[in-house]
Design a protein around this nucleic acid. Structure first.
Lengths: 220, 220
DNA sequence: TAGATTGTTAATCGATTAACAATC
DNA sequence: TAGATTGTTAATCGATTAACAATC
């Protein structure tokens, strides 16, 4: 099971996009695809696609290309879409609510089992079939259910305080929507950041660059 | 005003994080900082910080370091936080509502002037001080107000259809929360993608990798 | 002035692209 | 078999790190 060598994050970050394109191809009834054809659809080089896939094994066949359904399944497997990691959400404000209601956790390897909020107004309300719990229930809940993943949709300072506690309680991974910066503080813990504000500022820079006319192309 | 040479996207993507750290330093009353000190706080190399900043000019002073307030202002300026680009939001579902309510557009160079939704239930309701408009109003609204940026929080197929129309109407940049893939289709248009689903799948991969024990460290 | 720290050039490292032999 | 397309090695390109002279 152990991969011979750790695959670079650059490659990993492209996998979900491959997975989406293959879903679409599958839905369109396309059975096979060459790296060349896929590359032109995705705006990548065929070389890169073959390099990326060969980090995980030879899924293609010379002279034929890749079987769409099989490759889709393989990448899903690599990404762990079949897992059911117990997950809790901290914060049922605008963002927390949207994430909980919007995201297909089951299709991505997660199982949302608890939502916690400090605002008394929200406690007891229903979110995605879960009763929102008081954050006072966090410790007993984690001791009982042993969640592995925590989604942070709380203010920065709360995140700072909560993170150490959560790690003590056995949380191994964070989906972090806050501005709290884990950076160096928790080795061995996985942190995937979603910094919406940063993303918007990057857009700002790029718009301005384009408007000023000294743009080259639109890269992404 | 024109930069001598286009700055790489890798550098641009780090700027908002510098900006946040400098905000914090400023708030903490710290007046000056060396690249070495900043690097240890941010988990980068001092070399990288100096390289990054020197893409835009020499903001530091030999023997002293960087003036926190000045550098903060410079980076804010580079990112265009003082701009007020007219922006519209398509989709006032869970995600659209959360983004509209949550994001500090004014602090990031944008001015949200219109929200559009197809669901009759939502039309007329208030969101961030704006009355939600029927998507039938999109064309006349754009003709009158000439927005520059569109935020897409609508289904994939709607995004595909809307994007061409929006470009025709003069939209030059998209903040894209959908799975619609602009990739090659609209040259000269800026697209900043926020793929929450992809981010969650990357977390999935990394959790599994860590749990299987063949992890190295937590990189990010 | 001496010490500190930048700005910048050179060296290294990693990621992407190109090329081609292997093979279906 | 001949044609197509992979898997994989080699070449290129870009980004990061190291080093150090310039200078406050």
């Amino acid at each position: 099971m152990a991969k011979s060598q750790s695959v670079s994050l650059s490659v990993i970050r492209r996998l979900p996009r491959y997975y989406r394109f293959l879903s679409d191809l599958k839905a369109a009834g396309i059975l096979r695809i060459s790296s060349r054809e896929l590359s032109s659809r995705m705006g990548l080089t065929a070389s890169q696609i073959r390099q990326d896939l060969n980090c995980f094994g030879g899924f293609g066949q010379q002279g034929y290309g890749y079987n769409v359904e099989q490759l889709h399944a393989e990448i899903g497997n690599i990404l762990g879409v079949g897992k059911k990691h117990k997950t809790i959400l901290l914060g049922a404000g605008n963002l927390g609510k949207a994430v909980a209601a919007h995201m297909d956790f089951e299709a991505k390897g997660f199982d949302l089992i608890g939502v916690f909020e400090t605002d008394k107004q929200m406690i007891g309300k229903n979110l995605r079939g879960l009763k929102i719990l008081s954050s006072e229930m966090l410790v007993p809940f984690c001791k009982e259910h042993q969640p592995l993943v925590a989604i942070l949709c709380i203010p920065k300072d709360s995140a700072r305080k909560a993170s150490d506690l959560l790690v003590e309680l056995g949380i191994k991974a964070f989906w972090n929507f806050t501005h709290y910066d884990f950076a160096v503080s928790h080795p061995g813990i996985v942190v995937e950041n979603v910094h919406l504000g940063d993303s918007l500022m990057i857009l700002s820079y790029r718009v301005n660059e384009t408007l000023e006319g000294n743009s080259t192309d639109n890269k992404e």
